[in-house]
Design a binder for these strands. Structure first.
Lengths: 197, 197
DNA sequence: TGAATTACAGACCGATAGGTCAATAATATA
DNA sequence: TATATTATTGACCTATCGGTCTGTAATTCA
């Protein structure tokens, strides 16, 4: 983000707004599946402007992934920490998110999952960013689980959280492959038995 | 596969052998991440030979995915149905597969998962093939689970199988992002409580 | 042995990829 | 108002992309 009142011609677009558009492209199409021309079309910016503002395509992808973290991961973590709702509801809502998206006919899945499958093996920075996202989700999920399981120690809480993040990821991936909602949704109450036996 | 004793010059390579090499490339690099030049390098075949034998790049990808089904998915299904081993062990081995791979420093993940994240949203045939793979895994996993839970009805068995497939996928994806094995492996016994309470 | 058929090698194709550059426009500051 | 600084534009660059074509080699069958 460039300073307002900086010398020189002011930027005509908002960095974050553009990164959100770019995020949606990469989210849906993957790294190689999105060309700079597609980004130019979507943002209305010229190649050189993109390059000056964000760097090359790799940097663009990584910044889109960071934007996803700030928007989606942080949002999910906040919801999991919202103590005004019952802990059980919060966990359930988290696991239901993949199915809710599918109900709205959004089978884009989760950008972290897609990036992991797509680029984690090829680019260390992407790998690191994806790992960080999963860790954030795990830590956030640990809070309501700890409320539900006050007797358990931290390690056991984190293990359960990781298992549920696995289920979340699995549902995201399976939804994307077009498996029917009716088949998948019964896995949510099934997985919930891990926190409410 | 071309007929032996067909008229004309005989093919100098084995189709399946080449498809396995191509499978490994797409598995690791994704659809757009693998160029025809890379495939030529790996297989030693010329572009025109590839095209004549398998079709265009899309067909090549789809046939690689089919090869994965025949080699890996069918293999996993067979292991899950191997009644000479205890049902509990078979389920446990299935869930451990993602971690075993990581222990051998193989973080390639699962081609079905990668294909789902990479291409399911873009190509209906890929989507269909991925769905079929997940369904095969689910059905195969249902066998040992049914042995462990004779009192449960089929719907409930399949639900549990789907939840465990989710965990499997989640572990595959998380392993690929570089999360530590020590952190992930405790999720296996945790998930096993769904079949052995 | 000749005709038909298929495979192989490698040059070739237009399109597009990511990236760069020089000219011009818009602003802050002196 | 002049200067420095940054942004924008659109042409331009080279490399590579997926795909095709042509000529030659290898085989079966009559």
């Amino acid at each position: 983000m460039r300073d307002r009142n900086a010398p020189g011609r002011p930027r005509e677009f908002d960095d974050t707004e553009m990164l959100r558009k770019i995020m949606k492209l990469f989210w849906k199409g993957g790294y190689e599946g999105v060309s700079l021309s597609a980004i130019m079309r979507e943002t209305g910016l010229q190649k050189a402007s993109l390059y000056a503002a964000f760097g090359d395509k790799r940097a663009l992808y990584l910044k889109a992934l960071t934007q996803y973290h700030e928007d989606v991961v942080v949002g999910a973590a906040r919801a999991l920490n919202d103590t005004s709702r019952p802990a059980l509801h919060r966990v359930e809502a988290f696991l239901n998110a993949p199915l809710d998206a599918a109900r709205l006919d959004d089978r884009t899945g989760c950008f972290l999952c897609n990036a992991s499958a797509d680029q984690a093996d090829l680019d260390p920075a992407t790998k690191q960013q994806v790992k960080r996202g999963f860790e954030s989700l795990t830590r956030a999920l640990a809070h309501p689980i700890a409320e539900l399981r006050p007797a358990h120690d931290e390690a056991s809480i984190l293990t359960t959280a990781r298992t549920l993040v696995s289920v979340y990821i699995g549902l995201r991936i399976m939804v994307r492959s077009g498996l029917s909602l009716e088949q998948l949704e019964s896995s949510v109450p099934n997985a919930m038995t891990l926190v409410s036996p």
